[in-house]
Design a protein around this nucleic acid. Structure first.
Lengths: 180, 180
DNA sequence: ATAGAATTCGAACGTTCGTTCGAAAGCAGT
DNA sequence: ACTGCTTTCGAACGAACGTTCGAATTCTAT
């Protein structure tokens, strides 16, 4: 809170005139952030019908937001689970909606192309790939969001489309999706 | 430190008899953790020559360690960058060795099969997939490390082996690997 | 049994943190 | 100019944190 006070130019006590507690402020930031991502995603998906293209849009939207607000996302990733029960549920609902959109996209892909893989694992692997970027992306040596999204889209879509050979004894539990 | 005192049964002051500071304790834990992962990995890779199999071993080794020490890895992921310059360099060297092993495996794959992709992005995507698991893995509904490693290996290896169609304008900068 | 070293601990230190409070300052409408 | 509401702030409070210190306890070797 003292950092925010310094950065905003408002006194420490002044912050508490607008935000009743540090936790509620974090809640508002998280809610605004995830709601914005979901809103932008829906806008970009509107009208696009090709599933593969929709998945690429999902990745691009996610990476663009994460790289535009890299410092903020670093904080949000670290403070992801510190909200007390009252605040947490609300944010969790938005996160879940976002997660469900991704599940829907992958289920579409599976249905359309008769694929077989665990949607849950695929979604969480994709989120892992994308979210981890805040730990390594360096604007000086790494490409921009669009390029990275393209390459990650290649990796992920090729990885999920089963045309190569498989392993011995694949597919354990959880082909249908459960809680994130 | 008070949590550690309570959990270990030793008094708060007693801890400082063995560890001169909280930061040095964290440093020792990080060093031990990453050194153990690297040691186990090298032992498992010994004798295995098939590159694809070696990559699968890398993934399995990583996931097994992360899931066996899930709580610890959650802490380590969060405290990854808090070490002051003196301590940080030492741990960074081990991390870098680990990272380099993975880069080596993927470069082998690229050479053997004439593939073209950014090693850096592939490695960091793989680390993202694997590391993110500490945020979602639930022993009650998710499979064990071996199963997940198998599926992730499928995803990743298929994704990295270019046999499907590509996009318009792929491959930006960074085909050779730089700092993680 | 005893000396000396190694180990353990209660109590406190200084600092940082989230938060509160009363007073001051700014602003509106009359 | 005066009233009443909104906004801002310095100063402080209590709690939590990392750390220290001197005394007490335990261990080991003679």
């Amino acid at each position: 809170m003292r950092d925010l006070s310094r950065a905003s130019g408002m006194s420490l006590a002044g912050l508490y005139y607008y935000f009743e507690s540090k936790e509620r402020l974090l809640y508002l930031i998280q809610k605004h952030t995830f709601a914005t991502i979901v809103r932008q995603l829906k806008a970009r998906l509107g009208g696009v019908t090709d599933t593969e293209e929709r998945i690429r849009i999902f990745i691009l939207n996610h990476l663009e937001y994460f790289l535009s607000n890299q410092a903020a996302m670093k904080v949000l990733s670290h403070e992801a689970e510190v909200l007390k029960n009252g605040f947490a549920a609300d944010v969790a609902a938005i996160k879940r909606e976002y997660y469900k959109i991704c599940v829907g996209l992958l289920d579409d892909l599976k249905r359309e192309r008769g694929l077989q893989f665990s949607t849950r694992l695929a979604v969480l692997s994709l989120f892992g790939m994308m979210n981890w970027i805040y730990t390594w992306h360096n604007p000086r040596i790494d490409a921009d969001a669009a390029s990275i999204a393209g390459e990650m889209g290649d990796f992920f879509l090729r990885g999920v489309m089963a045309n190569g050979k498989s392993r011995k004894g694949a597919n354990g539990k959880g082909t249908t999706s459960v809680v994130p």
